[in-house]
Design a protein around this nucleic acid. Sequence first.
DNA 1: GTGTCGCGCCTATCCACAAGTTTCG
DNA 2: TGCGAAACTTGTGGATAGGCGCGAC
Length: 414
Amino acid sequence: MGYVCDFCGEQRSMVYCRSDAASLCLSCDRNVHSANALSKRHSRNLLCERCNSQPAIVRCAEERISLCQNCDWIGHGTSTSASTHRRQTISCYSGCPSASELSSIWSFVLDFPSRGESTCEQELGLMSIAENSTTNSWGENTIDQNASGAVEVNDRNEIAKSGVWHGSSSIPESSSLPNNPDQPTGSANTSLPKLYCPGTKCPVPYDDANLYEEFNMDEMDLSLENYEELFGVTLNNSEELLENGGIDSLFGTKDMSGADSNCQGAVAAEVSSVGLVNAIQPASSNAASADSMMSNKTEPILCLTEKQGHSNLSFSGLNVESSAADYQDCGASSMLLMGEPPWCPQCPESPFSSANRSDAVMRYKEKKKTRKFEKKVRYASRKARADVRRRVKGRFVKAGDAYDYDPLSQTRSF
DNA sequence: GTGTCGCGCCTATCCACAAGTTTCG
DNA sequence: TGCGAAACTTGTGGATAGGCGCGAC
């Protein structure tokens, strides 16, 4: 995923469809999602203007930029100055909206400061919608919208319901702090953890080598993608890890390659003099995993300790309600967040009792049963067809033949 | 210690057909 | 060399059979 539309490969991508896991230009978005009734139901959103790989969920009024959860966190969640930026949640949409309808929910869409060269903006005005653009296709967003179609982030309850994450810091009603749009907000505070997002074009210039010196691994890429290099072990089997107490196994002896490979967690850490790392920021290439990580209501704590001659990392700060099951979409994250390592008693924030943990393990196992690893769909049109094809015992049937499963009507022909 | 059974998990396979690719005249 | 038609290949999702590991007996 990148700047170019995944479908036509020519236009600049502007919207992201999670169902298709594709970044599309407005023209292709409309073409693809007008194919059938199911594809019309795909929920789409603006593409993050910073990493260009994740759906944007927030628009920063100060920077005039749309951000995904991850980039929003990087830019606003950890910076005291940037966290005061006034942000609005960005509504998703489905169906085949007209240009006017799009601009009605995204009042800012025609005013992107950094995408002026894209032809997609022009398409907004040029698109002609032949079919009915019924308003009922817009009913997905349950958040009350203001006139511009955006929602004030202040309403935390509503945001939580919508699954939209925002930074842990308070968000003021307004902000007058100046900000340079060309400069990532996350870098404004030089005391902040430095982070590089390997699977993205995240341009956040985390360059503080001192942090890495604290870890004694300044040459390393602090992402779980390179955990083997980082910790000298391979990681596998999240469930085993869970049952064995989690983090100790994770960074000690267990192999984790079986976990979702598309879930990478880049760790940003603020190291104190006692070796307590105070923040962990997931920089997942997977939207769902980012969601699950960031929907955590508490700020995770990363503990760095020395044990038996090698460094160990632990995570706590997970509240009771956000169980591992809630994070299973990101295999690593569930592991990282579940365990309360017995060897890390110095993390007083850890609220896990054994009962809670057992409960969490149970829910995790239950959800894992129904788990489906995300699959990269290369051709959205073929997927759209397959989604509506009738089947007999899971097999496609000829058109007109008897079927026992119809994805559209869930009915049988016999 | 060895063999058998049941259970759960994982993976390959099947199907039709539109779309993409290659071959041939 | 370029074009069009024909032949061939690819990819898509849900259900299911079969293989495998593990624990109990």
